[in-house]
Every structure is written in structure tokens, then in C-alpha cells.
Nucleic acid binder design. Structure first.
Lengths: 192, 192
DNA sequence: CGAGAGCGAATGATCGTTCACTCCGATTGT
DNA sequence: ACAATCGGAGTGAACGATCATTCGCTCTCG
């Protein structure tokens, strides 16, 4: 079987680059194959079809981000410090991996994304627990405004999404210092 | 020439519905034509091609929103009241016209959208003047945090975008009372 | 020599766009 | 007043391009 996982990685990388930069339209299987250095048919030895490739790649990225967040997350620290950690870690990850951010955006703004969001909010699965628990705890302690969870979520992380997008498109330079200021402003938005 | 503009309206309506609900993939010209009650070829009597149809429809919607915002906008009022007006008018418009919101989202998350955003930030054209002037005035008066414009923009309107999306997908019920609370929280985010 | 990884031309489906044609109200000629 | 003619809106079958997917073949190990 030689190095069977090498090609799978290459296909992932090629799909990530093309889809993140051009969207799903601009990423035909033939082009993904070419950039990965394999033949078109080879992709189907590793993935059932294009949909499976797209969904698998999303979960790969999503898991990696979850792992990075959890890596230095300390449940014992005060609320605001935990928020600081999550926010800045997320921001720095996206700045460091713009293709991951763009891919996630493409994914969420597509038929795949809607189905995925339904799963999250209904089955309450995945690593959104961390964010939600944090906010709920803040509400219980009367540190954070008493608003519905989706509203708090939007206030806490909505601006980050917009700003990272602007950063990648070159409209702002998202330095560490600016990330801190943005985080502080979002905290002002959700705190009582 | 009979009622020449009737068909154009029908094509707009059909394209809006299909693209807002299904995305650009799910809206082939043949289907738009069918829903508009015209033949496929007829669309090309009113629009040069699909791209032109999409861009024209976007500007139609964009202009309408701009008009609604400006309708009761009073330059003389205090900063915070003007922010209140813009924010709640926008929110209510999107709640009332979910298809318009979805279409704008689809548009912005596509090759069209990027080109469009470049135009806005470089040529400084269009009705974004209002938002920007408001924020800049606030910064000058030291009422609003001294942050780069894209950051302030994201803080002021980023959460709204996320919440409206959640509202349309049925994850929150965006009543007038909740809009006010959301607006207040966003104001907390940008004010000094 | 056999199994299976890898290949890539061929297939069938989809979609944007075209164009030769129809239809009908307006205009002109008688 | 009527017939002949015209112009252009509207049509939809057909075309060509694109794409995901397949499958019979080759080539390489073990």
C-alpha cells in the first residue's frame, strides 16, 4: 500500500486551497486532482464523492481548531480570562490560517452549513459547549447580560468573524494589540 | 410595447426567491424563467446575462434599503439616537424582508461580493457614508472608541447580521424589544 | 504472477446562452 | 376602410461548455 495517507493529505490540501480561495464553483474535481498531483479518479479511492470530501475536510479543520482552543484552556480561571483566552486564540488561529477561515466561511454559507448548524443547536453536540457554558455561567453570575444565547453568541463572536474577513481581504491589519482591543470591546457588549 | 416592465419585475421576483432560498447553484436560468412565467430566452431581452441579472438585483435591493434608512434619518439628532434609528430600521427591514437579507448574504459570499466591497472601501461611494460618518463623528467627539473604521463597523453591525440570520433560520424570535436590547449591547461595544 | 493502487479518457447530466422562428400591434399604402 | 408590411417582444429547442463520476486498463509491489 506504500504511503497511502500521503495522497489523502495532498487531496485535502489542494481542496482546501481551491475552495477557500475560489469557492465551491472554482474547485472542480479535475482541478483539485491536478493540484494534488493525482488523477481525477484517484480522489474516489479516498472519498465517496465530492460532498464527502467537503464534509470530511470541514470536520478535519473544525476538530483542529477545537483542539487548539482546548489546549491551554483552564476551567478554573475567572470568567473574563477564559473569554480572553478563547477570543484571542481563535483570532490568532484565523490570522495564522486564513485558508481555514475562508473554508469554514464557504462551508457555512452553503447547503452543507445550514444542515450543520441545525445539528449543533438541536443535538447540542461538539465543542460549542465551551462557548455556551462560558456564557451561561456568566449570565448565572450576573456578570453577563441576560439575553438569549444566540444573541450573546452574536455579540461575543460576530464582530470577530467580520474583522477576520476584513483582515484577510486586506482592509485592516489584525495585530495582537488590535485583537486585544477588539476582545475588550466585545466584552463590553456582553457584560452587564 | 404593452407592459414591458411587468416581466422584468417578475424575473426579479423569481430570481430573488430562488437565489435567496437555494443559493446561486439552485437557481438555473431555466428555473428562474419558469417561476417568472416567461421563456428562458426572454430573460436575455432584459439582462445581458446571468451576472448582470444578479448584480442589478443586488443594487435594486441595496438602493431600497438605503432609501428606507434615509427616509426618517435626522442629521440634527444626537449621535446615539441616530445610531438607534439606523440599527432598528435595518433590523426591522430584514425581519420584514427575509428574502432580501438572504439574497444580500448570498451576494456578499460570492465573487461578486468581494469585488463590490473593494469598490466601497476604495471609491468611498454609496450609502455607507451614513454609517461611516456617524462612527467618525462619534470618534471625534470622544463618545466612541478610537478604533479603525472596519473594527467599529464590525462591532456595530456584525452582531446584527448574525442575529438576523439566526432569526430567519428560526433559532431566535427577533421581536422589537429584543432588537432594542441588541442595539443597546452593540452600543456598549463601541462607546467609550 | 496476482492484487490492488492509480490512472485518465469516456460518459451522461446540467446549465448558460443563442438564434431561427412565431405572433401581434402599429404603420403604411391604396 | 382594408390589406399588406414591418418591427420587435417573446419563444424554446438546440448547442457547446463544464463537471462529477465511472471503469477498463496499466503498472508496481510483494
Amino acid at each position: 500500500m506504500s504511503n497511502c495517507c500521503d495522497k489523502r493529505e495532498e487531496i485535502f490540501r489542494a481542496a482546501l486551497e481551491l475552495i477557500a480561495e475560489q469557492g465551491f464553483h472554482g474547485a472542480p474535481m479535475a482541478m483539485i486532482a491536478e493540484r494534488a498531483g493525482v488523477a481525477a479518479g484517484t480522489i474516489y479511492r479516498y472519498f465517496e464523492n465530492k460532498d464527502a470530501l467537503i464534509v470530511d475536510l470541514f470536520h478535519e479543520i473544525d476538530d483542529k481548531i477545537g483542539a487548539v482552543i482546548m489546549q491551554d484552556y483552564q476551567q478554573a480561571k475567572p470568567l473574563r480570562e477564559r473569554f480572553h483566552h478563547i477570543f484571542t486564540t481563535l483570532a490568532r488561529y484565523f490570522v495564522k490560517h486564513p485558508l481555514h477561515f475562508r473554508y469554514i466561511e464557504q462551508f457555512h454559507n452553503s447547503p452543507y452549513g445550514v444542515e450543520f448548524k441545525r445539528d449543533i443547536l438541536q443535538r447540542k453536540t461538539g465543542d460549542c459547549h465551551i462557548y455556551r457554558d462560558l456564557l451561561e455561567e456568566g449570565v448565572a453570575q450576573q456578570v453577563i447580560k441576560d439575553l438569549p444565547m444566540p444573541i450573546l453568541f452574536a455579540l461575543a463572536f460576530g464582530p470577530l468573524k467580520v474583522v477576520v474577513r476584513d483582515h484577510i481581504l486586506g482592509f485592516v491589519a489584525l495585530e495582537d494589540e488590535l485583537i486585544d482591543k477588539l476582545m475588550a470591546a466585545c466584552w463590553d457588549g456582553i457584560r452587564r
